[in-house]
Design a protein around this nucleic acid. Sequence first.
DNA 1: TTGGAATATTGATCTAGATCAAACGATGCC
DNA 2: GGCATCGTTTGATCTAGATCAATATTCCAA
Lengths: 247, 247
Amino acid sequence: METGRSLVDAVRERCGRCSGRSLSICNVIDDQDLPALVAESSRVVVQSGRCFIREGAPAHDFYVLTGGRARLFTLMPDGRRQIVGFAELGDFLGLASSETYAFTAEALGDVTLCRFPHSAIDRLVERFPRLRCRLQKEASSELVKMQARLMLLGRKTARERLASFLVEQANPCCGHHALKDEQEPLTFPLPMSRTDIADYLGLTIETVSRTFGLFRKEGLISVKGASSVTLLAPGRLSDIANGIKRD
Amino acid sequence: METGRSLVDAVRERCGRCSGRSLSICNVIDDQDLPALVAESSRVVVQSGRCFIREGAPAHDFYVLTGGRARLFTLMPDGRRQIVGFAELGDFLGLASSETYAFTAEALGDVTLCRFPHSAIDRLVERFPRLRCRLQKEASSELVKMQARLMLLGRKTARERLASFLVEQANPCCGHHALKDEQEPLTFPLPMSRTDIADYLGLTIETVSRTFGLFRKEGLISVKGASSVTLLAPGRLSDIANGIKRD
DNA sequence: TTGGAATATTGATCTAGATCAAACGATGCC
DNA sequence: GGCATCGTTTGATCTAGATCAATATTCCAA
């Protein structure tokens, strides 16, 4: 938490060139009000592989992810893992918690965050009513995504799951214009491992790998070094994702 | 929407003996403020099998379920169905929507609802700030439930899924004391069909039926006429649900 | 550049749960 | 009561994806 004279510098440093500024909840806060935000929060850096939220631990803070990516997951006693999401730039973490966190968050590569104690969010929301609406919207859109994921895990085939995943990962990288009509190739990195993808899609690593192989053979994608993909036919993949068969 | 003289009567009739009063979002509204709630909402009765929310339709209203139960689901183009939840007394419906509803809601038996246009909720939230917190909590706990459901669909076996379902359905009926240590039998109705259960758990109707059969044979449950169960060993079922093996 | 640990691919086989196919039983209607 | 309908159970078989088992890559670190 920053105070006094240095606050102006802190704002410049923290928010000045923050690439999450326009994506995150802060996009409802005017520039001149940023000091209030900065004063209520603190910057956190987490190195690759470390956890910054632990399932079951008392939920004291919210986080805004301002750099890098994270895997969010829950575990069963015997170690089975379900990844409930991949957090990316601007994501607001911690809504899915009551007294304790409902998931663990682990840095995928190095991660930077802004941490807001619950009490700080209460004060900010009091002062900036639009923030409250923004949080509501955030929860709402998270719920919508979750429902799509229930369909994916409950009813889709392995092919459909991987296609859905690729289309979803491509989306933030293509400026949000509808992918389903997109014919141009689209390249982007996949920072997560095959194991992560499997635990996200409710499959095994072998099935994920085989399905990647099939898509490659069918000319739907090409892969560079396992951590970068090119969608060669985004529209076709989007159809597969939604269970639509072209003839 | 009710006005003038009749409002007092309307409140008495609508909220006076509403069994959702203490469960729903209205539990943060004092009795003397109920007229404001009633004035902003309207009572809706839906007969068995009818839809009152349609996936993809413009989302104009929120609903509070005040009687009966409903199935909430999404469909794929080829008819595959995923039930995303069963709404019960006091549930607030419509949070999972942006411009359009993300799911369809269909009455399971006759259903009564209070309908609140979005604009009405905005006004009420303005007037009763605690309502805003209550809605936030509602969204939060819904997200937590969703994450548990992702684990269920992504990683649990058929046995674990059905056990989870039974424990979940039992919970509201046993006054929320922890089921996992409960040894007393627990009887409650299952208003949904086997097909509904299958579409909720990401299984087929046959697998659901067979698993019911197994649980019966193992003395874990007993069934009366397919729409009422008794959990004979709730603690044991809770362990199965969580993938814990007793020896 | 090489060695080796970690990660990913590919192949062979197995199995939980799906699919196909009857019976069975409850519920309502004549 | 009897009979048709719909939902459920049970049985036989099949298969998508899991599991087991080698390779083959990739990626570092020396």
